[in-house]
C-alpha cells in the first residue's frame, strides 16, 4: 500500500515537472496531493488526509487552476538555448541534497525508535482539537492573527475604494 501511494505521489510530481501544459501540470499536482493523502491514511491520520484533500486539492488547487485558465497561457515556451551547465549543475545539486537527506533520515535516532513502537491509535478530530487548543494554543492564535492580517491586506489590495 505504501509503495502504491508513494509511487502515485512521486509519479505525479515527476509528471508535473515534465509537463509543458500548465493545466495538466496542475492536475498532476492534484494527483500528488492524493498520493500524500493516502500516505497520511497509512500513517493512521485520516483527519490529515481528509483535510489535505478538502483544503489543498479541493480549494487551493481549484483556485490555482482557475487563475491559470483565466490567464490563458497554457503552453510553456520551450527554452531558447540549451543551458547545459545549469541543467547538469542542478541535477548534481539535487542528487547531492537527496543523498544527504536520505542519509540524515536513516541516521536519525527517532526512526529506530519508530520501528520499535506499536502502531499509534488513529488521530481523530477530537484529539486534534484538544491538541490545538491546549498545547499549541499560542501557535494557533498567532496563525489566526497572521491569516486575519493577510485577509485584510488582500481585501485592501483588491478593493481600492474602501
Amino acid at each position: 500500500m505504501f509503495l502504491v501511494f508513494a509511487l502515485i505521489t512521486l509519479l505525479g510530481a515527476l509528471a508535473m515537472f515534465r509537463q509543458r501544459n500548465v493545466v495538466v501540470a496542475g492536475l498532476c499536482m492534484v494527483l500528488t496531493f492524493f498520493g500524500v493523502a493516502g500516505l497520511f491514511v497509512l500513517l493512521a491520520n485520516p483527519v490529515a488526509a481528509a483535510l489535505q484533500i478538502i483544503v489543498y486539492s479541493g480549494a487551493i488547487m481549484v483556485l490555482v487552476l482557475f487563475v491559470i485558465m483565466l490567464l490563458n497561457s497554457h503552453e510553456e515556451e520551450p527554452a531558447q538555448s540549451g543551458r547545459l551547465v545549469q541543467a547538469w549543475g542542478g541535477a548534481l545539486l539535487a542528487a547531492v541534497l537527496g543523498v544527504g537527506a536520505v542519509k540524515l533520515v536513516l541516521q536519525s535516532r527517532t526512526l529506530h525508535e519508530l520501528g520499535a513502537s506499536p502502531v499509534p491509535a488513529p488521530i481523530t478530530l477530537n484529539k486534534l482539537g484538544v491538541q490545538i487548543f491546549s498545547e499549541h494554543l499560542v501557535a494557533f492564535e498567532v496563525v489566526g492573527l497572521l491569516l486575519l492580517a493577510a485577509m485584510i491586506a488582500a481585501v485592501s489590495i483588491a478593493k481600492r475604494k474602501l
Binding site: 493512521a44 485520516p46 483527519v47 488526509a49 481528509a50 478538502i54 479541493g58 481523530t124 478530530l125
Partner: peptide
C-alpha cells in the same frame, strides 16, 4: 474509520 463525515466533504 476515523474519516467519518469528513470523507464525503473531501
Amino acid at each position: 474509520n476515523g474519516m467519518g463525515m469528513l470523507y464525503p466533504l473531501a
